[in-house]
Design a protein around this nucleic acid. Structure first.
Lengths: 219, 219
DNA sequence: TCCGCTTTCATACCTTGGTATGTATGGCGA
DNA sequence: TCGCCATACATACCAAGGTATGAAAGCGGA
């Protein structure tokens, strides 16, 4: 039976990889769209940076293909905007009249590739493939870190404190001395931390603390 | 008394940052040497890649400044050689007639910067400063990882096995069941691991296991 | 052959970790 | 005011971690 379980479906499996193209030349946009769709990729087309920023970004594996010279914003400024926004994603630049300093700036700012027009279709596809793989890994790592951060935020102030000290390797009694508590109270907080963080072992908790960057608070 | 303790001196403190220049143009070599020395940097000059490869690389914070066009090897090939060798260090390229694809390749391969001749002294100094800072951090992390790897190699096969299982979060009895041992034997191996790895707590050991990449052996 | 290392295990003992039950106080919002 | 939550602590009990002592077997090198 087709029971439409309206609950979430964990095996969301393969969200189609999407390439976002931003270029003011419609002919080029269409050519790229055709190229990408020919290898099974989803495509979104925009004529300007502003249009993209106003749109809802697609999920998971996605990347941006744009001309360094855009109407309105500079490609490099736009790159900075994207990187700072929550829709951060890998960028592949195209250029007709780029120079080396511009290329260096773009690459230093994290661009995946920088193609000079005219480019070979295969070069573009290679760049996009690499970019999509980067984004997949990145968003995976992001999701894991975010999940842990959410759990961590569900801890009370005391529990966070205890977690930091416990994962730094101190014994319960040492933690107790450090923050002026009795050992039994530390044990209780510790138990709460384990449950709330969904940690199945101390090793687990230590790894979560690493992800959270706990203990690197000396600076 | 000047007791010349021939043993190593841990407070080696500040090894002078060194810039290695490789260029076949002696005038440029000298100009760069003068520039770098003017801000207190050590400098080593070479006329070709081969000369550098034959020399003993300087310690700690160092970086390489070289022309993309070298006598003999291509700058990009040389970059790959350096990256694969133990004297891996940040590279700053200079070029008189570079193009964008070449720039992109170099940057993708990890170059810190790519300056077009003629360049401003300040741009070169900025690039070198960044590169040296990269190398300092890198060699710090390398040293820490190497130290841990050395300790790990002093473990027996069984001890490595136990370390992997313990740091994955299993209890002694579970480890015992996993590799068909009695619990007391696991405890003994575990004690040996802690001592040999110089770990002051389980949290410590877990972090070392992370550095070693233990547990990511599923692939 | 003897020594040393690795590996294994038992018995005993102590320390630490973890949980349950019960008590108590203070803050904060319905 | 009542209830909820965070915080703190005690007592008790059991599980797990850690170390010492002693013992035994196999293996490889001096």
């Amino acid at each position: 039976m087709i029971s439409h379980t309206s609950s979430s479906r964990p095996p969301a499996a393969a969200p189609a990889p999407t390439v976002i193209v931003v270029d003011d030349d419609e002919a080029l946009r269409e050519a790229l769209s055709s190229l990408f769709r020919s290898v099974g990729l989803r495509v979104e087309l925009y004529g300007s940076a502003a249009e993209l920023l106003a749109a809802k970004p697609p999920a998971a594996p996605r990347c941006l293909v744009l001309d360094i010279r855009l109407p309105g914003v500079s490609g490099l400024d736009f790159q900075a905007q994207i990187a700072a926004s929550p829709m951060n994603m890998p960028i592949i630049f195209m250029t007709g009249h780029g120079d080396i300093p511009m290329t260096v700036r773009a690459m230093k700012a994290g661009a995946v590739d920088f193609l000079t027009k005219p480019f070979r279709d295969q070069d573009m596809l290679d760049a996009v493939t690499t970019a999509l793989e980067h984004d997949r890994r990145q968003s995976e790592a992001n999701k894991a870190a975010t999940d842990i951060r959410d759990l961590y935020q569900s801890l009370t102030a005391r529990e966070k404190e205890v977690m930091a000290l416990v994962t730094s390797g101190l014994m319960n009694k040492q933690v107790a001395a450090q923050i002026n508590l009795s050992e039994i109270t530390v044990k209780i907080h510790r138990g709460h931390v384990m449950r709330k963080m969904n940690a199945k072992s101390l090793a687990d908790l230590v790894r979560m603390a690493e992800t959270l960057g706990l203990g690197i608070t000396k600076a």
